[in-house]
Design a binder for these strands. Structure first.
Length: 299
DNA sequence: TTGTGTTTTATTGCCTCC
DNA sequence: GGAGGCAATAAAACACAA
């Protein structure tokens, strides 16, 4: 620094201490001398006569002291123009702003005095500084919002894809259910036609009728078992592997008697294991599967 | 050197608060 | 009504590429 022994340089160093509990008091104790008189500040026009060899313009002159005389000339001759504050004046104001971005009249006057500026200049500087700070803050907020938005959008996209996938699966399952329903209806109507045949016969002894009924029942059982088995173990049917129907099946299995379990192991499933499709509500299974048992037991 | 974009300083007009 | 803050804007200073 050109004037190493100046109050300012000492005070600036003291300001660089990490402690923030000692704000700019040190600065404000510099006395009444305008040690911050900016070389090109407007206010200096009033005080320019104080500038001599020892108190010459303080800051800008650091970089080009050889121009001091020229600058002094400028002070006398150039019209009053907008001038930038020196680097150190700005640094000082920045420090002050960090501590408190609002300016009470007392503080404003003190700052003006210490920096060799007009109080109005200090006020304007704070005004503009607040505006810049606000702009920066808005940019930060915008970036934060954008980050948040991007994250949410990514989540939303993932969920939408998952939803589409599940919808496709639901459609596939619905289609299969409808097909199966159609198949069961077709089979039932065929059986109705077949069952009308024996009823046309003259009423015989009950024993032979029972025998025929049993045979029909067994035939029905075996036929349904084979068709049901083929449905249940159809590897193309994803719904039998998704845990819903399989757990349904398992739950039913656990209620089987020993004989039924034996039949199951032999491939002879009781028909009531398979509920009537038109009555089946897979979202809320009936309490008793007997309620939904296939009517074929009645044959 | 010059044209152009950015930053900084300052003004103006409006608003709010005491 | 005056003081002070803010937004919008002007204008000077500055940076920088061509």
């Amino acid at each position: 620094m050109a004037s190493g022994g100046s109050n300012f340089s000492v005070l600036l160093q003291s300001q660089q201490r990490p402690s923030t509990s000692q704000p700019l008091d040190a600065f404000f104790l510099t006395g009444s001398s305008p040690s911050f008189l900016g070389s090109r500040s407007m206010v200096s026009f009033e005080d320019v006569h104080q500038i001599n060899g020892s108190t010459r313009p303080f800051f800008r002159s650091f970089d080009h002291e050889e121009n001091v005389d020229d600058e002094l000339d400028e002070y006398f001759h150039q019209p009053e123009k907008k001038r930038r504050l020196s680097i150190d004046q700005v640094r000082f104001l920045e420090k002050s702003f960090e501590i408190e971005n609002k300016l009470e009249p007392e503080r404003k006057n003190q700052l003006a005095k210490d920096l060799g500026l007009q109080p109005r200049q200090v006020a304007i500087w704070f005004q503009n500084r607040r505006a810049r700070w606000k702009t920066k803050q808005l940019e930060k907020d915008y970036e934060a919002l954008q980050t948040s938005y991007n994250s949410l959008k990514a989540d939303c996209d993932t969920l939408l894809k998952e939803k589409d996938k599940l919808n496709a699966e639901v459609n596939l399952l619905t289609e299969k259910l409808l097909l199966r329903e159609e198949k069961v209806k077709l089979e039932s109507s065929e059986k109705e036609i077949l069952s009308e045949e024996p009823q046309k016969k003259p009423i015989g002894d009950s024993a032979s009728e029972d025998e025929g009924s049993k045979i029909s029942s067994v035939a029905c059982k075996q036929e349904d078992i084979s068709s049901a088995k083929s449905d249940i173990f159809d590897s193309d049917s994803p719904h039998y592997t998704d845990g819903v129907h399989s757990s349904l099946f398992e739950a039913e299995q656990s209620d089987l008697s020993q004989d039924e379990e034996d039949n199951l192991s032999k491939g002879l499933l009781p028909a009531y294991v398979f509920p009537k499709l038109e009555d089946a509500d897979y979202s809320d299974p009936p309490a008793s599967f007997e309620d939904n048992a296939l009517w074929c037991w009645s044959y």
